[in-house]
Design a protein around this nucleic acid. Structure first.
Length: 436
DNA sequence: TCTGGGGTCCTAGGACCC
DNA sequence: TCTGGGGTCCTAGGACCC
């Protein structure tokens, strides 16, 4: 028996009182660039990943030109030049700051908010009069646009997954004007029957290929499958998606962000690098940043993983990749210790004769700093006062004002970001430079 | 020439124990 | 010759997300 047969009588679509709204900023990074550069409004805009490698955000005008998400920049270069597309390197401090402002405004519209990503948040609309929801959504959209200058889409449903579906419709159908409220059973079924399985939240590339090879093309087709089949082939995740699409909420609003379990710092190099010297400078730099990130969140660890790899796109070159798990004898977030351990690890997995493309560090099994106790109290205090000075100097005078000797001075390996906009909202000095 | 970065969760299978 | 079975814990890898 399929899920839908089992559940039709129970009429889940009407049973739940709770409502979720998903607010999603349209082409977020491109929209951020537009706030401070009015000349590019209504013009095609794309934003590139680190190293100006891939296209990671596109304005509607850029989408219409056929530029694909995730497409390598060099492949789209012809279309970009021909159509005078405005191109920006990513400027995460700008986007992060704008995101905080958007979230702050959103939180005035409901006491229950989950910040889901840099450009998305779920709000809970419990106890709202359904007739007034549309007005409320309009107000959200207008306020964010007016106060911050970012266009958003709003989708409302009885589960997070249905709110995602609604948001998808709000974005896709122009006549909806950025708002879609999906609560009526008939309408839900209608929309699910034309929703491609690949567009369901939680179903990615692999699963959608698998589903289509089994004759499942729409979300509605998916709901026709027997429960046992879904469980067997897609595990609990598949089952959960089905329940959510049927209006049975399985995913709750996470108002308090869980503390991070891992923390990764990795970059592709601006140029392929071969020497141990260059590689160790980059690893020292990533380890330094990783330690800083831990201190920002008051976290510590005693285990980390180091990895490095060559460019697998470059078929002519010899390929090598390796990773190493590194244990530290005590919990720490001390830059000096973490850099030292990372470099010791690098010696073990570095092999000469390869052109390295990327390296990174993952801090694992993170726990709260307050957990440090016992034998290492002495070291802890000494280290944390040094690290505090380290962090406050870098905060005041800019990143990497102070750094460990291992990071080196000639950063040949560092990223290329040729088209970056100024950090309008976060770095006064840079703004001055530009204005002058 | 040029192909991102940072996360989460789930599962299968091995190690180990009694 | 014949060599248990069930439980737990850990880890690597795969899938997904933005």
């Amino acid at each position: 028996m399929s899920f839908i047969q089992q559940t039709t009588d129970k009429n889940y679509y009407r049973s739940s009182k709770q409502l979720f709204a998903l607010i999603d900023c349209n082409s977020f990074y491109a929209s951020c660039e537009r706030i401070f550069n009015t000349k590019i409004i209504k013009k095609p805009v794309v934003v590139l990943s680190n190293n100006d490698g891939c296209i990671i955000a596109r304005s509607d005008e850029a989408k219409e030109l056929g530029i694909q998400m995730g497409e390598p920049f060099f492949k789209a270069k012809d279309i970009i030049t021909k159509n005078k597309v405005n191109v920006f390197s990513s400027n995460y401090s700008l986007y992060g700051d704008i995101s905080n402002r958007v979230m702050e405004v959103l939180s005035t519209f409901s006491p229950e908010i989950e910040i889901y990503s840099i450009d998305e948040a779920f709000l809970k609309f419990d106890g709202f009069n359904e007739k007034k929801i549309d007005d409320h959504c309009k107000k959200i959209r207008d306020t964010i646009k007016q106060w911050i200058g970012i266009p958003v889409s709003v989708g409302v449903g009885r589960t997070k997954t249905l709110a995602k579906v609604a948001n998808h419709l709000a974005k896709k159908n122009k006549e909806k004007k950025g708002i879609s409220i999906l609560l009526e059973e008939k309408e839900i079924k209608q929309e699910l029957s034309i929703l491609d399985v690949k567009d369901i939240w939680g179903i990615g590339k692999k699963l959608s290929i698998f589903l289509k090879s089994n004759g499942i093309y729409s979300a509605f087709d998916f709901l026709q499958k027997e429960r046992g089949w879904v469980r067997k082939n897609m595990g609990v995740i598949g089952e959960r998606i089905v329940m959510e699409l049927l209006g049975l909420s399985c995913l709750s609003l996470e108002m308090i962000p869980n503390s991070k379990k891992n923390c990764c710092v990795s970059r592709s190099f601006g140029y392929p690098i071969e020497t141990f010297e260059d590689l160790s400078q980059s690893v020292a730099n990533y380890a330094t940043r990783a330690a800083e990130k831990l201190r920002e969140d008051n976290l510590v660890t005693n285990v980390m993983s180091l990895f490095l790899l060559t460019n697998y796109f470059n078929k002519k070159d010899l390929q090598y990749s390796n990773s190493l798990k590194i244990q530290i004898d005590y919990l720490t977030n001390d830059t000096v210790v973490i850099v030292k351990k990372a470099l010791e690890g690098l010696k073990k997995i570095y092999r000469p004769g390869y052109k390295y493309k990327k390296a990174g560090i993952i801090m694992l099994n993170l726990s709260q700093e307050s957990n440090i106790q016992g034998l290492f109290e002495f070291n802890k205090e000494k280290s944390s006062s040094l690290m505090k000075s380290f962090d406050s100097i870098n905060l005041r005078y800019g990143n990497s004002t102070i750094h460990t000797a291992a990071e080196g001075i000639n950063k040949l390996w560092s990223m290329q970001r040729q088209k970056m906009s100024p950090c309008y909202t976060t770095r006064f000095n840079e703004l001055l430079k530009v204005d002058l």
